[in-house]
């Protein structure tokens, strides 16, 4: 087990090294970084001085080494817009985003579990059909639009929740529903399909013929096996949740790091964008590491492979 964890840890570090190249490359995607960073009407001698000052006249590998040696120390440079260090700017808003994605994940799992279960137990009944229709809507409605609908109905018409901001748990509800709805649909659907597959297996028939009640069969035999793909999926959903949080934070004016990203994109504030991508990737690598470890612990075959 120790060696398995070490191997996954090394893999995570390799991925992060790759992410650092990607983040470094962001500056060069547009061709000339100076053209991105300076206004169009900058005089040529000014451009040349800036190019030299920023080190853009050096070979790319040298520039990368310079970048990575600062990045590992948490130095992504100063935000062009806010004129403060970029990484703390992102990290300061991380807790708010974690609260939002955490609430979204909790919401999606808590609703997906009973929904998937009910749909599988009552296959091809009106209940199953309406759950599947809701799943289809959840998978197909764009987050920004869903957010606006929720605001119009629950914040403006009914006045149950605030329209925007982050004051208390009430302001977390609508953004969390927005961010969680896509994962909710994906999980409910996967759980339903998984349960139906498992329920068709021989050992379920055996369990039934032993005289176990449907409820016992479901909980002891079916749910456990159907949960395996759901756990894998949860690891993959983190990326979707963080991506969805960017949109929801913007619509609800929620002060997380996603809203910071949108404003940084608007200002072409590259250090903040680079810090954001690095922080997000680190989070995802950590979550996947945790999922891998949990897996190796649950299933001995994996840690030997």
């Amino acid at each position: 087990m120790g060696r398995y964890i070490l191997r996954r840890l090394m893999h995570g570090l390799v991925v992060l090294a790759g992410v650092s190249v990607l983040v470094f490359a962001l500056l060069h995607v547009s061709g000339d970084p100076v053209a991105v960073l300076l206004p169009l009407d900058t005089p040529p001698e000014e451009v040349a001085r800036f190019r030299h000052q920023m080190g853009f006249d050096r070979p790319l590998p040298v520039q990368y080494l310079f970048f990575i040696s600062r990045a590992v120390r948490g130095d992504f440079g100063y935000s062009y817009h806010y004129r403060t260090a970029a990484l703390p700017l992102v990290l300061n808003r991380l807790p708010a985003t974690l609260r939002l994605t955490g609430a979204a994940l909790a919401f999606s799992v808590l609703v997906a579990l009973p929904a998937g279960l009910a749909a599988a137990l009552h296959e091809r009944t009106p209940l199953d059909l309406s759950i599947r229709l809701a799943v289809l809507i959840g998978q197909s409605a764009p987050g920004f639009w869903l957010a606006l609908l929720l605001i119009a109905v629950f914040a403006v018409r009914l006045g149950w929740f605030p329209v925007s901001g982050a004051r208390g748990w009430r302001s977390l509800v609508l953004p969390a529903v927005t961010v969680g709805s896509f994962s909710l649909a994906a999980l409910a659907r996967l759980l339903r399909a998984g349960l139906l597959d498992v329920l068709a297996q021989e050992y379920i028939r055996t369990a039934r013929s032993k005289g176990l009640s449907p409820r016992q069969v479901m909980i002891h035999h079916a749910l456990k096996n159907a949960a395996i793909p759901v756990v894998t999926m949860l690891g993959l959903q983190v990326g979707f949740l963080l991506g969805g949080a960017v949109i929801a934070e913007e619509v609800f004016a929620y002060p997380g790091m996603g809203r910071l990203l949108v404003s940084a994109v608007g200002h072409r504030d590259l250090p903040v964008i680079q810090a954001f991508v690095t922080v997000t990737a680190t989070l995802i690598v950590l979550v996947n590491l945790a999922v891998d470890v949990a897996y190796g612990w649950l299933d001995p075959r994996i840690r030997q492979g």
Partner: peptide, 20 residues
Amino acid sequence: DVQQAVPFLVLALAVVALVK
């Protein structure tokens, strides 16, 4: 693996900001 560690929407946002 590297691309999977960066959400599609985040990567697309970052790049769209820098290209015309």
